[in-house]
């Protein structure tokens, strides 16, 4: 008997999680249907692209550069044991394109833009601005959520590409200076091993991550209750839930993308 009772809290947690997931799916579906209905507010959409993309640029440049540099340093040290430093370029390039750039970019955009979305919509929620939109016959899913989600679907892949590029620049700088790899072989291996499929696969992932992080952050904002404290809770919740989702989704997407491209290669 006590053994059963011990599990009841666990079931409650599981049930709450499932109900939360169901609620999120309904929210996401409603937002998607509103997205394809007129009016299309291009102004909101471009504003979000600007907010998500342009304003995230500095942090993407910085993290991209240093990630490429440290990655080259680590792989370079190991490869030096086998006298294979020339492969640093291709290793870093592949890892960046397939995994590191999409995941890091999505996590950075979550930290910067996702948290802002949850805080902004959460504040509008608790100050009845969201309700005011409803009463003015402007659906807040269409007005607030759609532009943010579309903005992320477009901008996260774009930022991923930039992350890729500066990451490779960072690896090149470290490789040619600290690791004494000649510039020619470094670049040749990079071009040879990194295929367009790798880049596109990474960007596809990034688009999916963008969808999830925006939809989750907006959802958290929308469900905010209880004043300033509630807004704080939603913001933290948005970052945690988005980050976990990105990492879990990455695993499944990777399995799927690898399978897709390997079956089409041979």
């Amino acid at each position: 008997m006590t053994a059963i009772l011990k599990f009841i809290p666990f079931w409650n947690v599981l049930l709450a999680a499932l109900m939360g997931l169901g609620d999120w799916c309904r929210f996401a579906w409603a937002s998607i249907t509103w997205t394809f209905r007129p009016p299309y507010r291009y102004h909101n959409f471009f504003y979000q692209m600007q907010f998500i993309g342009v304003q995230s640029l500095p942090i993407i440049l910085l993290t991209g550069l240093f990630t490429g540099m440290v990655f080259a340093l680590q792989t370079g040290k190991t490869f030096a044991l086998f006298k294979m430093q020339n492969l640093v370029g291709s290793t870093v390039g592949l890892a960046l394109a397939r995994e590191i750039a999409p995941v890091f970019t999505a996590l950075m955009v979550t930290a910067r833009a996702g948290s802002a979305m949850a805080a902004e919509i959460g504040t509008m929620r608790v100050t009845e601005q969201v309700d005011a939109l409803y009463t003015m016959a402007v659906d807040p899913l269409q007005y607030l959520v759609s532009p943010r989600v579309i903005g992320c679907i477009f901008m996260v892949p774009l930022l991923t590409m930039i992350f890729n590029y500066v990451g490779c620049v960072g690896a090149y700088l470290v490789g040619t200076t600290l690791l004494d790899i000649p510039s020619g072989p470094f670049l040749r291996h990079l071009y040879w091993y990194v295929d367009p499929e790798d880049i596109f696969g990474g960007m596809l992932k990034a688009a999916v991550f963008g969808f999830f992080l925006a939809m989750i952050s907006c959802y958290k904002g929308f469900k905010t209750e209880g004043g300033a404290e509630g807004v704080g809770r939603s913001t933290t919740g948005a970052v945690v839930a988005s980050s976990v989702t990105i990492l879990v989704a990455d695993y499944f997407l990777t399995t799927w993308i690898l399978e897709f491209f390997t079956t089409h290669h041979h």
Partner: peptide, 11 residues
């Protein structure tokens, strides 16, 4: 049209 008790202006 609706006027909210605390106005609910877009801040």
């Amino acid at each position: 049209g609706m006027l909210f008790q605390h106005a609910a202006l877009f801040d």
